[in-house]
Design a protein around this nucleic acid. Structure first.
Length: 581
RNA sequence: CGGGAUGUAGCGCAGCUUGGUAGCGCACCUCGCUUGGGACGAGGGGGUCGCACGUUCAAAUCGUGUCAUCCCGACCA
């Protein structure tokens, strides 16, 4: 490809609306162009990268025994009602109507469709197990798209679904996919960590996420992990053992005391001169419009996903101060956040108020708790005497670094990660409600035991930029670079330079290398800057040293430069390309 | 959804306070010159200033509304 014809427009500056490195780089280097919030054009360079990621995925999935197909992007409401997710999926599901008023949605994932395909075709246990996958655009109407390709609304995903007749086969396929994923990300030049995670709206029990570890803001997930054993978990799923703490408030009796202006746990703990660990904190949440009050030890924070799971909801948010005010009024109180407690709160609007107790409050004795009166707290409280312990008891606590590994007891560490893939054991979550069954050897109809396995193709490419770049641009791994190499004649008007460059270019082309020749009549600085920004893994510069029979060979990843003969340069690139796994 | 900000050429921005023929840099086209890390000179093309309504002789500029985009927050009680 001639650079003069390559469809790319590099920019002198980073776009003003980009925050993270991958977004800045890809936009400035002419890979992507935003169409609207969270929706991007993949320009020719980007498309080449994405196709390479896809091809690696296809290769490994096919090797692992999965079969590719392609399902529709637009899906009818009926299937989603069968699975129960039309109501359960929440605002991310992009709903629309066709001209007849029939309700449809844009596919955010394809469990419903694949299950309907399977139930029409997979009638016998003899046909199982099966793994089917596709690579396709998905649409999720994210509440706040950001970070360029890392959290877009429309994105490309590989989604695979397995069907088995027993748990053992599902376990095998789960391990099979685990290995395939490890291979895929390695081949894309990404080191990943498999971490336990919440299964969210997809559902199911066992699940792992493949995280690219990064210490930048681009990593949207907190990952807790242990150096001494293999424990690693997303913060939405992590558990830990706590260090010992004071759990007895040592108050002589239960009484209401004045605690003026103690709006925070710190203020309250300082005012009463007690550790925050003997305070029972009450947080008001709205889960699917219904009020839920979470009780947790004063020094700990609530993990919202865990709380959501504890009550079986879909969308969670903290209540506004206005809602708290209303709720207090309805129950005959007048208290603001900071003085809320479980006693006496019954209803809010049409809903009964639910209470959820974190495990950290169960063992508290003579503790401090709000009583829905401003500037007052109840001290010396005990469960069953002064305050009822809620029926729902669950671990809703956010783990913190320094707490102890649940497997081996050593301190946990925390880091940030970009989730590029995930694997779930779904079980019968979809097959049962959708009545997707096969006939087993005993002649009985049974629902499939399913698994699903996703990889964010666009996100994987962006994560590769996050992992491989410098101030000058992208340093693509050779396996997913849009082109392997660029040949740069310093002066296109110098006949010897141009002839040599063209020969190198043609030699590389002949040997299967994807190469660009920068034939533009530009000054060398411009060409070098563009080459670095775009991120060609290898650059062969043909300049003045050609009089000595040498060209300059630059490796983008390492910055290494050396003068070699044309033939040596060609051979180095060809060898490297042939060694791509 | 709550809070904040911004919409002027493909990109980055000025102009708005104080209303009067729409500007700068990059990019693009032509010519010259230059050729190892985003040169230089001369000439040129491209924007109904997000949209609507209003005020006014006159609106990028003032007012109202609306749409869009970005940031922060929504794990504080």
């Amino acid at each position: 490809m001639k650079m003069s014809k390559l469809f790319v427009q590099t920019q002198r500056e980073f776009p003003a609306d980009a925050e993270v490195v991958s977004h800045k780089m890809l936009a400035r280097a002419g890979y992507i162009k935003k169409l609207t919030s969270g929706v991007y054009n993949f320009l020719p360079l980007m498309w080449r990268v994405l196709k390479k990621v896809e091809d690696i995925i296809r290769d490994e999935m096919d090797k692992a025994g999965a079969q590719e197909l392609l399902m529709p992007f637009v899906q009818p409401k009926e299937l989603w009602e069968q699975s129960g997710r039309w109501n359960a999926y929440g605002g991310e599901l992009m709903r629309l109507k066709d001209r007849h008023g029939r309700e449809m949605c844009l596919g955010p994932t394809h469990e419903e469709i694949i299950t309907s395909i399977a139930r029409d075709s997979l009638k016998s246990y003899k046909q199982l197990p099966v793994n089917l996958y596709q690579i396709q655009s998905k649409f999720r109407d994210e509440r706040r798209p950001r970070f360029g390709l890392l959290r877009g609304r429309e994105f490309i995903m590989k989604d695979a679904y397995s069907f088995a007749s027993n748990q053992e086969d599902l376990d095998k396929e789960y391990q099979n996919m685990w290995q395939a994923y490890t291979n895929i990300f390695n081949r894309c030049g990404l080191a990943t960590k498999a971490v336990q995670s919440d299964s969210g709206a997809i559902g199911g029990n066992v699940s792992h996420e493949f995280m690219v570890i990064t210490d930048t803001d681009a990593g949207e997930n907190d990952v807790f992990y242990c150096d001494d054993c293999d424990y690693a978990a997303n913060s939405n799923h992590a558990i830990s053992n706590l260090p010992e703490a004071v759990l007895d408030g040592k108050f002589d009796k239960a009484e209401i005391v004045d605690t003026p202006d103690t709006h925070s746990i710190d203020e309250l703990s300082a005012f009463l001169n007690i550790p925050s660990t003997v305070i029972c904190k009450s947080l008001v949440y709205i889960i699917d419009k219904a009020p839920v009050i979470a009780l947790i030890r004063g020094d700990k924070a609530v993990e919202e996903t865990k709380l959501l799971n504890a009550v079986g909801g879909v969308e969670i948010r903290i209540a506004t101060s206005g809602e708290i005010e209303e709720m207090m009024k309805e129950n005959g109180f007048d208290a603001v956040a900071g003085f809320i407690g479980p006693n006496g709160l019954k209803k809010y609007g049409e809903y009964d108020i639910k209470f959820v107790a974190d495990k950290t409050v169960e063992n508290l004795k003579n503790f401090v708790v709000g009583i829905n009166q401003n500037d007052k707290h109840l001290v010396g409280a005990n469960w069953g005497v002064d305050v009822e312990l809620p029926e729902i008891k669950a671990d809703i606590r956010l783990v913190e670094a320094g707490e102890f590994c649940p497997q081996c007891g050593k301190p946990l560490k925390v880091t940030r990660g970009i989730e590029v893939g995930n694997i779930f054991q779904l079980g019968t979550k979809y097959s049962k409600p959708m009545n997707a069954v096969y006939l087993d050897s005993d002649g009985k109809a049974k629902p499939y035991i399913m698994g699903c396995y996703g990889i964010g193709v666009t996100r994987t490419a962006a994560a590769a930029v996050e992992a491989h770049h410098d101030d000058f641009g992208i340093k693509w791994p050779l396996s997913i670079a849009p082109y392997h190499a660029v040949v740069v004649p310093v002066s296109v008007k110098d006949e010897l330079q141009m002839k040599t460059a063209e020969k190198i270019y043609n030699d590389l082309l002949a040997q299967g290398v994807e190469v660009v020749i920068d034939d533009r009549d530009e000054r060398p600085g411009v060409k070098f800057k563009d080459a670095d920004l775009i991120g060609f893994p290898y650059r062969i510069t043909v300049g003045k040293t050609i009089s000595e029979g040498k060209v300059e060979f630059v490796t983008r990843a390492t910055g290494e430069k050396k003068d070699v003969t044309s033939d040596e340069a060609v051979k180095t690139v060809v060898d490297a390309v042939n060694n791509i796994q």
